[in-house]
Amino acid sequence: MTTTRTVQITFDCADPATLALFWTEVLGYRVQDPPPGFATWDDALDAFGVPASERNRASAILDPAGVGPRVFFQRVPEGKQAKNRVHLDVRAAPGLQGEERMAALEEEATRLGRLGAARLARYEPAPPLELGTIVMADPEGNEFCLD
C-alpha cells in the first residue's frame, strides 16, 4: 500500500527572516501567521521566553491558497559551500515558448534582481522542447531556475 505524503521545502541559511521575505515575493506566498492567541510573532516569542538574539532562528512561508508546500528557513552556522544538488524551478512562463517565453523570463529575472537575486546563466530555447530557462540565485546564493 502506497501512502501519499506532503513535503516541506527547507532552506539552510544565515538570515531566515530576510530569505523568507524574498521567497514570498518569488512564489506569491505569505509569512506564516503566529500561533493562535498572539497578534504578532514577537508577542508569541515574548510569551515563550525566546531572547531577542534567538528570534531569527527560523521562519516559514505558506501558499495562501493552501496548495503548494510550506517553505521553511532555518539558520545554520555555516555558509553555502557548493552548487545545490536540488533546486526549485519557478514556473514563471507556463505555456509560453520561444521569444515570448524568454521575454517573460527576462521580465521576472529583472524583478527578482531588484529584490536581491543574482542572475547566473541564460539557456536559449533549443530542440527538442524549444524551452529556455534563466538560472538565478537568491540573496544567500541558493540556485533556482526561472522556467
Rank of each mutant, 00 (worst) to 15 (best):
V76L: 09
A121T: 01
T133W: 02
L131I: 11
A58I: 02
F22K: 01
A47M: 09
D89V: 07
F48M: 15
T2K: 13
L21G: 08
D33N: 12
A58P: 03
S59E: 05
V86T: 15
K83V: 08
E143D: 12
P139E: 03
F72M: 14
T2D: 09
M136D: 02
G49L: 09
F73N: 02
G37C: 05
P34K: 03
A92N: 01
R114P: 00
F38L: 07
T10M: 08
L129M: 09
A103F: 07
V50E: 06
I134Y: 06
P64I: 02
T110Q: 13
V135R: 12
T6M: 07
S59Q: 07
P64W: 00
A60M: 13
P128Q: 03
G132R: 03
G95F: 09
F38T: 04
P94L: 08
E100L: 06
T2Y: 10
Y29R: 00
V67H: 08
P36A: 13
L88E: 06
D15M: 06
P128G: 01
I9P: 06
A92D: 06
G68Q: 11
N56H: 01
R75Q: 10
V31I: 15
G37T: 04
L27I: 08
Q97Y: 15
T3F: 13
L88Y: 04
A44C: 13
R111H: 05
R85C: 04
L45W: 12
E108W: 07
P128W: 02
G116D: 07
A109G: 04
R70Q: 10
F144Y: 12
L115V: 04
K80I: 12
P125Q: 03
